[in-house]
Design a protein around this nucleic acid. Sequence first.
RNA 1: GGAGAGGUGGCAGAGUGGUCGAUUGCGGCGGCUUGCUAAGCCGUUGAGUGGGUUAUUACCCGCUCCCAGGGUUCGAAUCCCUGCCUCUCCGCCA
Length: 465
Amino acid sequence: MLDLDFIRNNPDAVKKAVRDKNEKSDVDAILKIDAERRQVITELDNLRHQRNQTSEEIARLKKEKKDADKLIQSMKSVGERIKIMEKQLEEIDKPLREQLYWIPNVPASDVPVGGAAANVEVRQWGQPPAFNFTPQSHWLLGQQLKILDLERATKISGGGFMILKGAGAALERALINFMLDVHTGQHSRKVGIALPLKDSLFNDGISQPRKVGISLIPNDSLFNKGIPQHYQEINLPYLVNQKSMFATGQLPKLADDMYQTAEQSWLIPTGEVPLTNIFRDEILDSDTLPRYYVTATPCFRREAGSHGKETRGINRVHQFNKVELVKFVHPDTSFDELEKLVTNAESILQALGLHYRVIKLSTGEMSFASAKTYDLEAWAPGLGRYLEVSSCGNFTDFQARRANIKFRDPAQAGQVKFVHTLNGSGLALPRTLICLLETYQQSDGSIVIPEILRPYLNGQELIKS
RNA sequence: GGAGAGGUGGCAGAGUGGUCGAUUGCGGCGGCUUGCUAAGCCGUUGAGUGGGUUAUUACCCGCUCCCAGGGUUCGAAUCCCUGCCUCUCCGCCA
């Protein structure tokens, strides 16, 4: 949600944002309602003022045992008028709020305007691995290795669900633990600095990119003094109420993409929702900013209407696990914090030796609530394309305003202001798994486990049938 | 699931129809004191919103907010109804 005052003062910027994000809000209509609303408020406030003063007068007369009947009689009509005007105000307020909720966040000035074609590749890391055989898709590999079962998942739950078993289940769990350890700073303590992959494990004489050296996280040069080095791990509810979904911007827009229970609770589509809502309706101490959190949660998405190539395998499923990073920061620092957030997510891909590119999303491609978004797209050799494994965004004060998350700024006489919120995947599991299986596959269908994951798998080096 | 109690400012905790946005204590902030000294004293201290003065900082006036939503009343933190939440006891159960 945007500040109404900001819309009043910058109507053109807001209109441009609506256009660039392909939304349909009518800014002029909102401004018109707003003007009307303020008029009603002034009138109403005057009436209330009258009532308050007269009430005082009545109280005084009664105390002095004097007759107040005349005043009381005269106030009856005022009370009624107030009630009528309050109704009127409500009737204006409701459509105003509803229209306000549909205005998207304003993109940052350096975000390219346009649709998918306007996306900008910011950088690449590594190279697509070369194979001397035709790389298989993850669903074939998974089936052969008996670590992935889509048929039975369909039997149990329906299309768009997956079963991981044996080494597949263990691999996903290892990845989650690995990611959490990296983001919480536990990783290097546990396993030390990882070494490059051993050539001997590759029985088919493959190429460079899969043998990259591993740059370990976090990149300390990115962290200034006084700023947390790592994210705090946290576990949260997967079922949330209406208010929470509204606060992070999923509602009202994405109602059809989510699951709702009979009790009107919602299943979270991302850990961002409960995580960002932790501090809803709170005022934080400025010296506790920035705050970094990481959580691993399942995500539930209806994915209504998406079929075909996209949904083959485990690329797009109704339930999946994701490690999510969220930050609460001082407004002045949020865009710097975004850059750091992206590198934190990248560090996972680098450690796993997966080729990827960083995309700065255009206005038309980024989400409703975001001011600036980077996507990380990792290479899936079997599918022959990049998959979005992470989306990192700065939501500025858009979510904070909806969620009412503030901080007291001692630099400005203790003024209360909205924090900025950021979030990013670090990373989404199924797609990371896809890229891992397809990248590290060998001609016999076995999978080499990246060295950095081996401590999480009792030293296992290979998955084979 | 059954019975009871309760939800007030950063926290604790008064207030049961008329200057109550709310006593008081703690905490925070500012100042004074400097031999009551890991102390004392004084002052100050909520948020939101409409309007005004001042190009900012700031200040002034009004209104709203004592869990949420309705109701009674000239007037509600205070009375009534509904919902949500918390606590205690009982039952049930990973």
